[in-house]
Design a protein around this nucleic acid. Structure first.
Length: 798
RNA sequence: GCCGAGGUGGCGGAACCGGCAGACGCACUAGCUUCAGGAGCUAGCGAUCGCAAGAUCAUGGGAGUUCGAAUCUCCCCCUCGGCACCA
């Protein structure tokens, strides 16, 4: 336990800061706005765990420095309280989600108060507040009106445990993002947001923003742009064509068969001509029953069935080639059909080997030598064309365009990104504000009728059908058509939680606005967000959706920028004993306990001292003692300085510290900033002086805001240390006047001496050669070369 | 398989625009202090050899560039994270 009364101090300042509103910028008049945003938490379990604290403290330190540098820092907080995570927890403890939300809210805000972040509490918001979700619904209505929200039938992801559909982004390696259950496919009619319309911009604009490389790459991969060609293969004796997308049109002469995915529409259309229809139907049935995981697990053991009696024509060489159905071709990508080039695609190669299909090499790596290797795997590299009619000898790169033109194909760009499935068959979310009328089809709820309130029902549990629990609330579902006034029914699904969180940072800046989601002038002042901090696990979820909505808002004229966050940094993962913290492993660290025992300042600094913020680290109970000792020494020094003031600290150490700590905070290297604070304290203890101690307190303030404030006021200051001016350093004073010069012979240290930093190269060299140990080392030999690095070393090469 | 981040003492980590490897802290050891301590202070603390001065080795492994490499280049291995039958 610290020597000082941290409980009293922390409580006192938390209340005082709130009263004095020191963290509340004037949102309409601020002169130097700086929006320091951190991902708001979702209240899913008993409370915040230490990983959340880690995230919030790191983000806050950055904001505190910006505030001391004279910025009007806005650091809002709220709760992402709607959604499956909160609802699942409520169900688990048998409580109504609405009731549980009240409990969680209180607990979460209590914890968030404790950690000493400079939150702007006046602007807090919760996504389940009707004042908030009114605008979430408003966004949905606009999306519909602009044609960006569409209802369509699709083969969608369904989580059998959460009993709802999921967006592609919420399926991780075939499993539900929330509960880890294997996801299955269902053919359902659902609402989608057309994020694919923005694929190109979402990809290109990544180059314009300062984000972690990790996250940018994840988004690039997810959007998955590939350039290629769209080529048609006519089906013999019919009007049908098989359209395929390929990135390798240069290998067209090597296409020896076609494959349709089991879900492909042509399969049905060709039924009456299929000679082995029974066999085909059986295969399709089996394929559809397989989960994604099973398909992947089968790996190289590819299966398929030929559509007997039907042939396609390869327009390049006019050859008739067979058509197969195989589940290694995915319905959801490209056209759901491929031209198979076994010689130059590994998957096609494996399939051809297994089914005895011809493998024809058309790109040769050794051209012009005719020594095409015998393949034991596909050759996927570049080369020159062979066996390709008039294109023989062309490089594969040149051939791509020419062959595409030759067969009447088109160059095409294909994306992996798919539309955002927005419907959820659950209770705890904003009802989708749409109404279905037999006569007028789908109509949006009139804007003046928003919000569509989530009804209080006892039957909030998921139904397990493809309908939300709201469908059972007749008085909710039954309504009038906003267009014709006739009998109509409401959409009873709610929207995805990720829609709630895709725009919350817009609402923070104007959260009391009754007329609009937010004011355009305020947005111009505060947005885009200057610094955003959060977990990297949202790389292709939240962070992609926010970018999408921002672009949409831009196109609607609500804002005049197209990227939400100028700078984004992902903090690392905090683990314990080398493993992710989890209740089942029993290695969860409870932050409340540590705050109780040692105080928030100690917890904050310990978390930040573990390792570089962006890298995360391994929590160890025992090493928190180091920070506890450190802050006690700070306290004791403060008491000492109250009585006696006279000593002075090394000016060089002081200026070096100001420089290093400032730069380290900027780089988010809080661990090394803290070690520099320790070095400065060591020095201060030897020569305590009030003025340098006050500088130290300013440098300490972002890390240990309570203690720094207490000691700052004890020096007689009337204003908060957090409103004081961040110290400046003089570059010249960071340099030592005398430096140790190392003298090496052949790169090995033999001696060292002190030299003034102004000494000339010649002088240093002379002094080095004059040293007795060096004379001994040289033993009369003549140096070949002497290297002098000023202020560092002399290397004598023999 | 592809992409990203890493690999340094007993531990967390520092140095990485090439220049004394191990800052700062934890743990540990010894001493002082204390009625006592999960307290404080002082000193030591990579390995090997040595009484010592000192010497040699050492930043995942191997090559290379250089007077000089944890840092730059190439190859390989391992760990973590993301994506993945994407045509």
């Amino acid at each position: 336990m610290p020597d000082y009364d941290f409980k009293k101090i922390e409580k006192k300042w938390a209340e005082r800061w709130l009263k004095d509103k020191i963290y509340e910028p004037d949102l309409s008049k601020a002169k130097k706005p700086f929006y320091n945003l951190m991902m708001f938490p979702y209240p899913s379990a008993e409370g915040l765990h230490v990983g959340n604290m880690y995230a919030f403290v790191g983000a806050d330190i950055y904001g505190r420095k910006k505030r001391m540098e004279g910025n009007d820092v806005f650091e809002p907080i709220g709760l992402d309280g709607f959604g499956i995570h909160s609802e699942n927890y409520a169900i688990k403890i048998s409580k109504h989600p609405k009731e549980q939300a009240k409990v969680s809210e209180k607990n979460f805000y209590r914890q968030l108060q404790m950690i000493g972040d400079g939150f702007a509490w006046d602007e807090k918001l919760e996504t389940y507040d009707p004042e908030y979700y009114k605008w979430t619904q408003w966004i949905f209505v606009q999306m519909f009106k602009k044609g960006l929200a569409v209802r369509r039938k699709a083969n969608v992801n369904w989580c059998p445990k959460c009993l709802t559909v999921l967006a592609d982004e919420q399926v991780l390696a075939g499993e539900c993002e929330r509960c880890g259950t294997e996801v299955i496919k269902k053919e359902l009619e659902q609402w989608f947001f057309k994020i694919t319309d923005y694929a190109e911009r979402l990809l290109n604009d990544l180059d314009k923003i300062d984000w972690s490389e990790q996250v940018k790459t994840a988004q690039k991969n997810w959007i998955g742009r590939s350039e290629g060609a769209s080529i048609k293969f006519p089906i013999l004796k019919s009007d049908f064509n098989i359209e395929v997308f390929t990135t390798r049109p240069d290998t067209l002469y090597g296409a020896t068969y076609m494959i349709l995915s089991p879900e492909h529409e042509l399969v049905q259309k060709l039924e009456n001509r299929t000679q082995n229809l029974e066999e085909v139907k059986k295969y399709i049935k089996e394929a559809k029953n397989k989960t994604l995981e099973e398909r992947i697990a089968e790996g190289k053991d590819k299966t398929g069935v030929e559509l007997k009696g039907i042939k396609a024509i390869n327009l390049a060489n006019k050859e008739e080639i067979p058509i197969w159905i195989a589940d290694y071709v995915l319905a959801g990508y490209g056209t759901g059909a491929i031209m198979a080039v076994p010689a130059h695609d590994q998957r096609d190669f494996e399939f051809a080997k297994k089914c005895g299909l011809p493998i024809k090499m058309v790109v040769c790596p050794h051209y012009p030598e005719k020594t095409c290797p015998v393949l034991d795997s596909a050759y996927v590299g570049e080369g020159h064309l062979v066996d390709s009619g008039k294109f023989n000898g062309l490089s594969s790169e040149e051939a791509k365009k020419k062959i595409t033109e030759f067969v009447g194909g088109e160059t095409k760009v294909q994306y992996h990104l798919r539309d955002w499935l927005i419907s959820r068959q659950r209770y705890w979310g904003p009802p989708i504000p749409m109404i279905y009328c037999e006569k007028c089809s789908w109509q949006p709820v009139s804007e003046e009728d928003l919000p569509v309130l989530l009804p209080d029902t006892k039957d909030f549990r998921p139904t397990g059908t493809d309908k939300s629990p709201l469908a059972t609330v007749e008085e909710f579902a039954k309504t009038k058509c906003p267009r014709c006034g006739g009998e109509a029914r409401r959409e009873t699904d709610v929207s995805d939680t990720f829609l709630d969180s895709a725009w919350y940072f817009f609402r923070y800046i104007d959260h009391k606005n009754k007329k609009k989601p937010f004011d355009k002038l305020r947005a111009r002042k505060w947005l885009p967000v200057d610094m955003y901090t959060g977990g990297a696990e949202h790389a292709v979820l939240h962070l992609l959706y926010t970018r999408f909505l921002t672009k949409v808002f831009h196109d609607w004229g609500l804002i005049d920028f197209a990227e939400p966050f100028k700078k984004f940094r992902a903090h690392g993962l905090l683990i314990k004993d080398g493993a992710k913290m989890s209740k089942s492993k029993g290695n969860v660290v409870n932050p409340d306990e540590w705050i109780e025992r040692l105080g928030a300042d100690v917890l904050r600094m310990h978390l930040m001292f573990i390792g570089p913020y962006e890298q995360g680290g391994d929590w160890r109970d025992e090493s928190i003692a180091g920070i506890d000792r450190f802050l006690n020494r700070v306290w004791n020094l403060g008491q000492k300085i109250k009585k006696e003031d006279g000593g002075s600290v090394s000016e060089t150490t002081l200026h070096q510290s100001i420089k290093k700590i400032g730069e380290d905070i900027e780089r988010l290297h809080y661990n090394t900033a803290i070690s520099q604070l320790m070095i400065l304290l060591n020095s201060l203890e030897k020569g305590p002086g009030k003025e340098s101690f006050k500088t130290f307190l300013k440098l300490l303030a972002p890390f240990a805001p309570f203690l720094a404030e207490e000691l700052w006021r004890e020096t007689g200051e009337k204003e908060s240390v957090h409103k004081s001016k961040w110290p400046e350093y003089e570059e010249s004073k960071t340099k030592e006047s005398v430096k140790t010069v190392v003298v090496q012979i052949n790169g090995k240290v033999r001696d060292r001496f002190e030299a003034s930093s102004g000494a000339s190269d010649e002088g240093i060299e002379k002094e080095a050669l004059g040293l007795q140990k060096i004379k001994d080392g040289l033993a009369g030999k003549k140096p070949k070369k002497i290297i002098v690095v000023r202020g560092r070393l002399v290397n004598i090469v023999l």
